[in-house]
């Protein structure tokens, strides 16, 4: 199979659980070799989408194509592999046995020793899974996913529940494996992970894609700065009317002004009003994330 097919084609994907629409007409195309972060708050529909992408659940409407075929076929041929939050391990097998047993299910795999090495768990190969930390178990799941040398690797919140060191080790392992041409899709609600490891960020909220672009593009969606000051009785309308002001928010005695010209706003606040404690902060990916994922909630 050549790389003429997109790695993933989701078209109008919809899935409801009772009255809750978890995924709502989601369409996405991922090209071979892309590293895509699926970013969104809990309950945004990331896991439901991934389950459908892997053929673990069926969409109510819409279609899924993985590497030009069905998800089931891609899984059976080892073309797609995944690290899921819900995938369990047998506590009474050793790490090495788990890898060797899983390898037997495929027609052909990379050597067990190689995937253990790449996942950074060679030293605990003889340890019983039940005595491994959460981070070690997650790297074991990663080793299992490496076995078929997949063209597409899917990771659902791979570092949830890990401490800082565990998260770092996990991403280092994933980076070490960054083989040219392997498509990676990972869901996360950690902005720094999306920022650090993805070429492309797909922001999801309430089962829909609300933004899709490079990390820089997503950050630009929230370009500009925020000027915050203490100003009792601020005239919100007057501030909003100033040139270069995007939004004004009053929280008690504080006023927050989003603007492309923070110098002018700060000068105005300090010279024309009784404002004090003026702070200027640039907006980051977190602001973009919050702006895009919390806007109009409760709709």
């Amino acid at each position: 199979m050549t790389s003429t097919h997109p790695a993933v084609e989701l078209d109008g994907l919809t899935k409801s659980f009772g009255a809750v629409t978890a995924v709502d007409g989601l369409s996405l195309r991922v090209q071979p070799g892309e590293v895509v972060a699926f970013l969104g708050p809990n309950g945004a529909g990331k896991t439901t989408t991934i389950d459908m992408l892997l053929g673990l659940s069926r969409p109510d409407r819409g279609t899924v194509r993985v590497l030009g075929g069905t998800p089931d076929d891609a899984v059976a041929r080892g073309r797609v592999a995944a690290v899921l939050q819900t995938g369990g391990l047998l506590k009474d097998l050793t790490v090495g046995e788990t890898v060797r047993m899983t390898a037997h299910f495929y027609r052909h795999t990379r050597p067990a020793a190689e995937v253990l090495e790449r996942a950074g768990i060679t030293d605990i190969a003889d340890r019983v899974v039940g005595r491994c930390s959460g981070g070690q178990q997650q790297r074991l799941r990663f080793a299992l996913a490496l076995l078929p040398d997949p063209d597409l690797m899917v990771l659902d919140e791979p570092t949830t529940g890990m401490d800082v060191e565990g998260r770092r080790d996990f991403w280092q392992a994933l980076r070490r494996d960054a083989r040219r041409g392997r498509t990676v899709i990972f869901a996360t609600h950690y902005l720094d992970e999306a920022d650090a490891y993805a070429d492309r960020i797909v922001l999801v909220r309430q089962g829909r894609i609300v933004a899709d672009g490079t990390t820089a593009e997503i950050k630009n969606l929230a370009a500009g700065r925020t000027v915050r000051a203490t100003l009792p009785g601020a005239d919100q309308a007057a501030l909003a009317a100033l040139p270069g002001v995007d939004a004004v928010e009053v929280r008690g005695d504080s006023v927050l002004v989003r603007t492309g010209d923070s110098d002018a706003i700060a000068r105005h606040l300090l010279t024309r009003t009784a404002a004090r404690d003026v702070e200027i902060t640039s907006r980051n990916l977190e602001d973009a994330f919050l702006a895009l994922t919390t806007a109009q909630t409760g709709a």
């Binding site: 673990l56 059976a76 899921l84 391990l89 506590k91 495929y106 299992l144």
Partner: peptide, 14 residues
Amino acid sequence: ERALGWSRQLRLTP
């Protein structure tokens, strides 16, 4: 094995 989620893990294999 179902309680542990192993059967779900197996669904990611052939």
